[in-house]
Design a protein around this nucleic acid. Structure first.
Lengths: 194, 194, 194, 194
DNA sequence: AATGAATGAGCATTCATTCAT
DNA sequence: GATGAATGAATGCTCATTCAT
């Protein structure tokens, strides 16, 4: 038996990519720098990812999955829409602030890289639960009857902004807590029916 | 006369850059394509912009200035905070929907290009008036006492999202009007004191 | 038994190489494709052929040997020079037309690959009988007194051309017969003493 | 006015390519070696030839044109088919023997490179006159009624072989004269009606 | 012996920038 | 100032070969 493709190595490449992408932006990052950072030979990268494009898509998916796992984990401990959304909001903001590198990388890729449609779809899937919750809430007249897609996009964009804001302030626990609160209040007050 | 010609050429380069950046993303756009689109020789571009980086920064500033001019123009026709903000909001959304090329270019540059600090500062300046308005409003207890910088960032991110949303729907006048309304309502309800 | 297996594998590699060389030209054929076609692992190829160069040389020899076996087999059924040459000519042309893949591969290698001298010599050996026949014929005054090496080369080049010509026409039996005849007539009339 | 593309430089690249192609075969020749040999920067090669493929096709055409010019020049000094063909034969053989490098390169490219159809057609054009002569001769019953395409191919392949043979012998004037004679005699006797 | 992951030199091509004209 | 040919470093990816398993 020859050496087997090791998951460790794939992971190492992904991690290296995330690190250097965060530092220099992926447009400016040669694959050779990723290999070097991962501690492997230039050619080896391509046994794990057929092209640089594949690697970027995979980096994106990997991080999205990590986020989804985190956010969906405790979500059913809550029964109210407010509770569920608050949970998602808080965890996402906290994750973003605590993982600034990964956070930068997904937002960067998301906004300025032509991801494959397949990947886009896969990246959305895990968040379906949130949309379901929102729809139910609208149906009950709890939150206003705005198109859910707009609300989803809104929540996403506002969370990104909030993470960036906290990061710019220095990512202290106090700021995290403060803007988790402010951000969510604005969002909720903005959409709740009254 | 000669002066005129020169300014024309600079403008031509800037316009060409915006066009091709929108089409292919600026990371993927060689300066030679910009020159060609502008109808000038490859080398000439560099007598107007010392480096490609300078050009990108200038493109960004140029568009930001255009937006600022537009938004600030009629702002003092309104006396209330609500009126002023609504005016800014509506004009910005409409401008974005009607100028998708320029809109894409600034958001693209803004999120994935390392702009010089100087340019970032210059780009903010024209929007100072809005911040002043917001501060006054907070002082009067009209809108809640949240940090203005956060509010400014919020308004910005939400408007970008809204433009994108309308564009994705096809940019009809009806959608424009609808989401101008929804978006502003959510924003205002989110921050207003009650 | 194990011996058998080994020989089978070497044969499998050679066959695979011929197939893919014919399809894509050997300059454009990675050894990995040969391994894959042969149903073995990349590394295994190199236990049978030390380098790609060795493999190419061996492919060449293998095919040359096959041709030699075929041509020399019935040659002594004929007693006249004309009969012997006609036999060789006809069989070679027919073999080339019926085995276009192998035919292409040897001509391709022969004209554009730097074969080792040793291989060149080995490839010639089996055709010695033909040269002997020609020499005898010259001695008897049957064919003209031209250097045999030139005659041998002539016969070779003309047969290659003839095979290619028939192949280009579609390799029908009628064309095969027709150009076997024409080609040989020209050749024989060209060299026969009168 | 900027520096203009100089014909000298294009010529220098073509010459360099021919030289190194002859030495190592074009499959094994990196463009960087051609540039170096031509005394230009790596990138410059691509301002004259868009791709390596273009360069190879152009090298082929260039040499074919040179040959055509040479062969067609004095051809109409002769009135008989025999005279015309002899002229073409002699000049071609002599050119090949005196220009072994170029000669190797065209035969190499011709037999093992997938030339564009357009180039193949262009390369044939100048030799149309020869085919016309052959056809006329057949019509008069001077040479046998074999398909002209076959005859053309035959003449070509036999001349290549003859050049190679003379070259292998050392390219002396004596050998040149001797095999010009032998080769043509065989060819003519092979096809002439009797 | 067989496997196939690992290696890293090598390659065609691109492109921002320079500079002779 | 304008031009566009020249430059050469940089890049994504390939592939013959090695070698740990």
């Amino acid at each position: 038996m020859a050496r087997q493709k090791v998951q460790d190595k794939e992971k190492a490449i992904l991690d290296a990519a995330i690190t250097v992408f965060a530092e220099r932006g992926f447009w400016d990052t040669p694959t050779s720098l990723i290999s070097k950072t991962a501690g492997i030979a230039d050619g080896t990268l391509f046994t794990y990812f057929k092209t640089k494009d594949d690697l970027i898509n995979e980096v994106y998916l990997e991080i999205k999955r990590e986020i989804a796992d985190l956010l969906m984990k405790g979500i059913n401990d809550y029964t109210t829409t407010h509770g569920k959304m608050r949970h998602v909001w808080n965890y996402y903001i906290a994750w973003g602030v605590r993982n600034p590198i990964k956070f930068n990388v997904i937002t960067q890729i998301g906004t300025s890289y032509p991801l494959s449609d397949e990947v886009k779809v896969q990246a959305m899937e895990p968040f379906a639960e949130i949309e379901r919750t929102a729809k139910a809430s609208i149906a009950q007249g709890e939150i206003q009857d705005y198109p859910v897609e707009y609300l989803a996009a809104l929540m996403d964009s506002q969370s990104v902004l909030t993470v960036r804001f906290i990061s710019a302030l220095g990512s202290s626990d106090a700021d995290l807590a403060k803007y988790q609160q402010i951000g969510f209040d604005i969002l909720w007050n903005g959409v709740v029916a009254r």
